[in-house]
Simulated assay, not measured.
Amino acid sequence: MTALLKTLTVPSGDAVRTLLPTLHRLLDGSSPPLLPVPAGDTRETRRLTDALRPGEPIDESIGLVVATSGTTGVPKGAQLTPAALRASGEATHARLGGTGAWLLALPAHHIAGMQVLLRSVLSGTEPAVVDVSRGFDPGLLPDAVAAMSGPRRYTSLVPAQLIKALDHPGARAALAEFDAILLGGAATPASVLRRALDAGLKVVRTYGMSETCGGCVYDGVALPGVRVRVGEDSRVWLGGSVLASGYRGLPDHPAFADSGWFRTDDAGVLDDGVLRVLGRLDEAISTGGLTVVPQVVEAVLTEHPSVREVAVIGLPDERLGQRVTAIVVAADGAIPTLESLREHAAAALDPTAAPRELHVVEALPVRGPGKVDRRALVARFS
């Protein structure tokens, strides 16, 4: 049977708590299917509604249609059932040690932020909220965390937020109060993870996407009810109780062609049940006939003392096909040089992976819930 997909306007700041009764009905299956859109952002709302068509029929078993952040500019809508969303929340609490109070510091129309609200409903708690409608201000964390009740407290962040918080003494101390900080949306540089652990933060690295109700692999280990496999081409596949019921309006999409599995665009290695994600297959750089995975190079370059953040992209090159290019946010007081970065990368990787071009920027562009917008960087520096 079918129902009509309805728009769920998601406010920012404290007003987001008004959604909790609706989300309670969603989880118990008594709500119509909903498409979250951001209040006050008419451009993004139009982009989502044009692609995902609220007001038109949809299978009544669907609870949420959550837009992927996408790399093409055209969002796909992951169709998530109440059962899948419940399975995700319950598996998260089982892995973390029980239900608790949650702090929302992410846009709630994306899956990571929406899951903070849904986990709050499952916990029977009301979330604390840090307003990120004008960007993330780590100075707001101390008061927000101090107002939270126990016995367990959790939050979800993206790496860019954690980097800002680590540089703010009050925010760093506030984050140390959490029983777990779920960190996802993008790869976490090893240097940032070390800083967080040295500061006493209980960071849990998560891997997942809208198509799996958000993070479903924690610190490399699948949550209860989640299945992981890696194909011969190193592609990561995910399945289990958290899996979406396909994409809105795309019943034959190849990502869901293998029944019960979702084909990701990520390369990975599965070693004794522990998944290590190497990077996106569609972002690999072909240079001089060899393949370079940007995330592998980034992991090395973030260890350089002059680098605060870095993105590695491939730019067109007549001789090589593509040349490896580093886009760097410099560490405080540092002046990165191409020569030093090349030497640093070549000491750990094949010399082919060492950057041949360097650009220093004040900030890296992001899309969705905190992923670096590589397409924007390629367009800017090509």
Results as ranks from 00 to 15, higher is better:
270 L>P: 06
22 T>V: 09
222 A>T: 04
76 K>P: 01
298 E>V: 13
35 L>Q: 04
92 T>K: 07
117 L>W: 03
65 V>R: 04
60 E>F: 01
96 L>M: 09
207 Y>H: 15
189 P>F: 04
292 V>L: 02
370 G>W: 01
49 T>Y: 06
112 A>F: 05
29 G>N: 01
61 S>F: 02
364 L>A: 05
129 V>G: 11
363 A>L: 10
96 L>K: 07
283 E>Q: 15
348 A>M: 09
359 H>R: 13
64 L>R: 08
30 S>D: 09
65 V>Y: 06
371 K>I: 02
199 A>D: 02
261 W>S: 05
343 E>A: 15
319 R>G: 12
146 A>C: 06
262 F>E: 09
229 R>Q: 09
219 D>M: 04
59 D>Q: 03
373 D>F: 10
206 T>K: 12
334 A>Q: 11
197 L>S: 15
169 P>Q: 08
305 P>A: 14
140 L>W: 04
121 V>D: 00
198 D>P: 03
216 C>A: 15
309 E>C: 04
132 V>M: 02
52 L>I: 04
226 V>I: 11
268 G>A: 06
22 T>P: 08
205 R>W: 12
184 G>L: 00
215 G>P: 10
334 A>N: 06
33 P>K: 06
278 L>E: 06
169 P>G: 01
231 G>A: 00
375 R>D: 13
195 R>Q: 15
23 L>N: 03
159 P>C: 06
374 R>M: 06
63 G>H: 02
79 Q>L: 13
266 D>L: 11
122 L>N: 03
187 A>Q: 14
84 A>S: 08
51 A>C: 09
151 P>Y: 03
314 G>R: 05
338 L>I: 06
282 D>N: 10
38 P>C: 01
41 D>V: 08
374 R>F: 05
138 P>W: 02
178 F>C: 05
262 F>I: 13
31 S>E: 09
139 G>P: 13
7 T>R: 12
84 A>M: 03
208 G>T: 12
167 D>Q: 14
328 V>C: 11
245 S>G: 07
333 G>T: 06
376 A>R: 13
237 W>K: 08
276 R>Y: 10
305 P>E: 14
151 P>F: 03
8 L>S: 10
209 M>G: 02
295 Q>P: 04
284 A>H: 07
200 G>S: 09
178 F>S: 02
137 D>I: 08
74 V>G: 00
269 V>Y: 01
365 P>F: 01
179 D>H: 14
94 A>I: 14
317 D>P: 14
343 E>F: 12
32 P>Y: 12
368 G>L: 00
127 P>M: 12
253 H>M: 05
254 P>K: 01
262 F>W: 15
59 D>M: 01
304 H>L: 05
171 A>Q: 14
142 P>G: 08
117 L>M: 01
374 R>I: 09
43 R>N: 10
66 V>C: 13
82 P>I: 02
367 R>F: 09
286 S>P: 12
5 L>C: 08
220 G>R: 01
147 A>G: 12
347 A>N: 07
316 P>W: 05
57 P>D: 10
87 A>V: 00
42 T>I: 11
100 G>F: 12
205 R>L: 15
195 R>I: 05
20 L>V: 04
68 T>I: 09
55 G>E: 08
59 D>L: 00
348 A>G: 00
6 K>N: 11
382 S>R: 10
